[in-house]
Amino acid sequence: MHHMSSAHPFDSGAGAGKIAVVTGASSGIGRATVEQLCATGWRVYALARRAERLDLLAEQTGAVAVPVDICDERSVQSAAERILGETDGMINALVNIAGGAHGADRVLDGKAEDWEWMFRTNVLGTFAMIRAFLPAVRASGEGTVLNLTSTAADAGYEGGAGYNAAKFGERGMTEALRLEEAEHNVRVIEICPGMVKTEEFSRVRLGSEEAAEAVYAGVEKPLTAEDVAQTVVFSLNVAHHVNLDRITLRPVAQASQFKVIRRESR
């Protein structure tokens, strides 16, 4: 028998008694994160715009559905008031999954509205959530802020400039936050997925199912939402003195931003 004070990260009770707020919860990585946090014992507030999807998720997992638009300051504030009223002003983790890409234009052909949407969603939305919930994270005594960025925060690529700019921006904010919050015993974690095939990301970005499918053509096993969520949940459940500053995960077929193994469909 081993006697360890903290539960193993994959124990079903690893998050027992802990409270998490998760954005982007209506689909993809956010949804999978809510499912897995609930399964490891966390009490989860699931935040997204689409109320009917959240209600279904709440029924399936026991999470609490909180409809919110992270790009609307007042919406964020009212969600925070509601949640913090129910949690005595304390949460253990703020998990910022909401984000996304619009368009794949080169800089010269880029659309200002695409860039603005990406900056609002990835940077300002995350910023609004942090401002609203950070005092509650600090109040837990052992809190965590986790931001989901992307390998697009590592290196620019053709057609990626707007998304690169947004994710580089989110990374900069995350790095500054880690320096500012260590003295408050707050962990700041950045998870950077490469190629993930989720139900909506590429469709939202490129506007059609066909264009979205082409992104993954010939790639035998892109990451799934569940794969990324497993890493998110591991980093939240690992002993609090361990800060996984930045985790990059890609499918084996994507050796780098610039090398992807695509096999002919047999």
Rank of each mutant, 00 (worst) to 15 (best):
V68H: 00
K259M: 11
Y45G: 05
A132F: 02
P193V: 10
Y163D: 02
A139K: 09
S140Q: 12
G13E: 07
A39K: 06
A165N: 08
R50T: 01
L47D: 06
E81I: 06
A225K: 06
M173E: 05
E210A: 14
M4F: 11
R43D: 08
R43E: 12
R74I: 08
A25T: 04
V123T: 05
R187E: 11
L47A: 06
F168T: 03
R49L: 00
V233Y: 09
K197R: 15
T61F: 03
E210H: 09
A139E: 07
G17E: 04
Q257D: 12
E226G: 08
D154I: 01
G41E: 02
E175G: 10
A25D: 05
G125L: 02
S6C: 10
E35P: 02
D72Y: 00
A217D: 13
V95I: 03
S26L: 02
G160Y: 00
R178W: 10
Q257W: 07
T87L: 06
E59S: 07
I130M: 13
R138L: 11
A132H: 04
A155Q: 14
S265M: 14
R250M: 04
G156A: 14
A32Q: 10
E73G: 10
H184I: 09
V44L: 03
M129H: 07
A161K: 04
A166D: 04
F10N: 10
Q77F: 01
I83P: 03
I91A: 01
A239E: 09
F258A: 02
Q254Y: 08
R120G: 15
R203H: 03
T144A: 15
F168G: 04
E180Y: 10
H102E: 09
D105W: 07
E180Q: 14
F133T: 00
E213V: 04
G24Y: 03
G99W: 00
A7Q: 10
G103R: 00
S12R: 13
R50P: 00
I83S: 01
L94S: 04
G141E: 09
Q230A: 15
L236A: 09
R82Q: 15
R74A: 15
T33S: 12
K18E: 14
N164S: 11
I247K: 05
V233M: 06
R246L: 13
A239M: 09
A212M: 08
I19A: 06
A104T: 11
R266L: 13
A139R: 11
L108S: 11
R178D: 08
V107D: 05
A139F: 05
M1H: 07
V228N: 07
A63D: 08
A46L: 05
I247W: 06
E116I: 13
L56Q: 13
V66I: 14
R171W: 14
P193S: 09
T174R: 13
F10S: 11
I70Q: 08
V66A: 04
N147Q: 10
I261K: 15
E73V: 14
E35D: 07
T33Y: 10
H3T: 06
T61G: 05
R250E: 02
Q257H: 08
Y157C: 06
S150Y: 05
L236H: 10
S202M: 13
E264D: 15
E210V: 12
C192K: 15
E180L: 09
F234N: 08
